[in-house]
């Protein structure tokens, strides 16, 4: 059973790896978007899926990362990919500052506060806060990334950059999921009071989940800025956050393969419905309702954890 599943994942990965060879530029670009959103979804999954916090403002952290990269590159001439660590760091720091006072809010109250957060960030960007964000036009003319003197320009080249990043993300988050930290978050999600009673510092873990998710979103912001060569406030609207949120819940909250499949569905389906012209989003909305009704836990829900007995008893 487990082998079979791994075989499917491996086959899928291989197919994906080879896809730029037989897809045209347009579809490779769609796959690039899917990859970006898959990584964003995975980072949001730590907050929503593992820790169970209702967070619908992830685009705020994404924006901090993308703008940090854009400003470092256009004003200070820092090569794009070198800006990545600082972008992640600033997004994490921002998350730490804003999440500290709101982390204790219950479910839906946290939801609206995070929505408010992403709107405040967007409005601040439009109003050219600190005079460095370029107002509603945003910042353009960001350099293409360079790896070992090799300039990344074509969609197929970005494809490998983005999906390599996705592979690293999947590996790290898979490790995180099974770590002490991941188990603590799961406990926290299932029963906060019991978790606290068992000696888990809930505020600390929630905050840590928030910051890790934000750091990752900030780092993807760098890739986004490099891919688009332009960042503008409209790329980081409330709607972007909603899309990320839908990816996580639709695919299967707390499940890595689920979230990746969610990204394929939420980003890919409107492209497939292109034949319906103007009505494609109508079909997309209806499809979401029906997918949720038929798979209420998400399409690939996380599998229950199993611990073999001979491992537990020495």
């Amino acid at each position: 059973m487990k082998d079979q599943r791994n075989l499917i994942y491996a086959g899928f990965a291989l197919l994906l790896l080879l896809s730029p060879l037989f897809l045209n530029r347009y579809w490779v670009d769609v796959l690039n978007s899917v990859g970006l959103y898959a990584i964003l979804g995975l980072s949001l999954n730590i907050i929503v899926g593992y820790a169970g916090m209702f967070h619908m403002g992830h685009a705020a952290f994404y924006a901090v990362g993308a703008y940090t990269t854009a400003i470092l590159n256009t004003t200070y001439g820092v090569p794009v990919l070198w800006a990545m660590p600082l972008s992640g760091f600033l997004a994490g720091l921002f998350a730490l500052i804003v999440a500290r006072p709101i982390i204790h809010l219950r479910g839906d109250y946290l939801l609206i506060v995070t929505i408010g957060l992403v709107e405040i960030v967007r409005i601040a960007l439009i109003n050219d806060v600190f005079g460095i964000t370029g107002g509603s036009n945003g910042i353009f003319g960001i350099d293409r990334p360079e790896i070992f003197g090799y300039r990344i320009r074509k969609p197929a080249q970005f494809f490998y950059l983005i999906w390599a990043f996705a592979a690293v993300t999947v590996y790290l988050f898979h490790r995180l999921e099974n770590s002490r930290f991941g188990r603590a978050l799961t406990y926290l999600r299932e029963d906060e009071v019991a978790a606290e009673g068992s000696g888990i510092n809930t505020a600390h873990y929630k905050l840590a989940a928030f910051v890790i998710g934000a750091i990752w979103a900030g780092m993807i912001g760098t890739v986004f800025a490099a891919k688009m060569t332009i960042v503008s406030p409209e790329s980081f609207s409330f709607w972007e956050s909603v899309v990320m949120f839908m990816i996580v819940i639709l695919g299967g909250s707390g499940s890595i393969p689920g979230v990746i499949l969610g990204a394929f569905l939420v980003i890919g389906l409107p492209e497939l419905f292109r034949g319906f012209a103007n009505a494609r989003m109508l079909f997309f909305g209806a499809a979401m309702v029906f997918m949720m009704i038929f798979r209420t836990q998400g399409i690939i829900p996380p599998r229950p954890r199993k611990y073999p007995i001979d491992e537990a008893t020495p």
Binding site: F245, M281, M288
Partner: peptide, 12 residues
């Protein structure tokens, strides 16, 4: 998420 889907549906 079902509500968000319904919202997209109505809007379109």
């Amino acid at each position: 998420v079902s509500a968000l889907g319904a919202s997209i549906f109505f809007q379109n």
